[in-house]
Amino acid sequence: MLTIRLIPCLDVKDGRVVKGINFLNLKDAGDPVEQARAYDAQGADELCFLDITASHEKRATLYDIVQKTAEQVFMPLTVGGGVRSVDDIRTLLLCGADKVSMNSSAVARPELIKEGAEKFGSQCIVVAIDAREVTGARAVAREPSGEGAERMAQNKNTHKKWEVFVKGGRENTGRDAVEWAKQVAALGAGEILLTSMDRDGTKNGFDLELTRAVADAVRVPVIASGGVGSLDHLVEGVKQGHASAVLAASIFHFGTYTISQAKQKLQDAGLPVRFSNQ
């Protein structure tokens, strides 16, 4: 039976693993190669490696780390951050990545998704979507018909809206997250990595409504991300959010829980999981 994937995520800045809250206040969480090795040994199902180094000049550091990390792990490795061209994708694959995740560049030039999928296959192309809830006044103000107040009352509970942010969460694109998800899937993305910016680093759990809205709208698998603080949150992400995979960072990096504790929790909730000795 296909199991629920549990994916630890390493946010890497200038060669170190860091973790922030709402994409800010970064805190050092260790050496990426060491962490990758530990997660491989614990039986993580995949590993995600996001480079959040601001400057593009430091790409060589990233390639070096991806290469060293890839030598240590024999599970699927997704690498993202600053991917702008088919050549960038190829370089990462040659460093040992199995999938490449793109975010800002896919929004800036959606054809990149198609080009990448055609050249390397959809299974290589992950589109990361950073979404923030805009339900309420702002979303309504965007409605062209301007039926203001009434719509606002209606929207409040029934029609939540989320918009896509890029550049590490600094820039709102105004795109609807669910629509964008459908579009990237149609362009050839093999998977969507969906992060709630409202929840990221808060430990309050996934934005389940967002996750479910996106997961139910596309045929490709959705990885839920942003906000995991307890093991129950992982279960909710699958059961209520309809995610195919759950991603978490700080609960694992800081040793709050191990991968196998998390899997045990998922299994106790009746979800299929794989343990490392199977």
Binding site: L2, R5, S122, R219, V220, P221, S244, A245, R274, Q278
Partner: peptide, 9 residues
């Protein structure tokens, strides 16, 4: 979901 992606026995 399609593709069939992940660990299966």
């Amino acid at each position: 979901k399609i593709p069939h992606m992940g660990w299966n026995n």
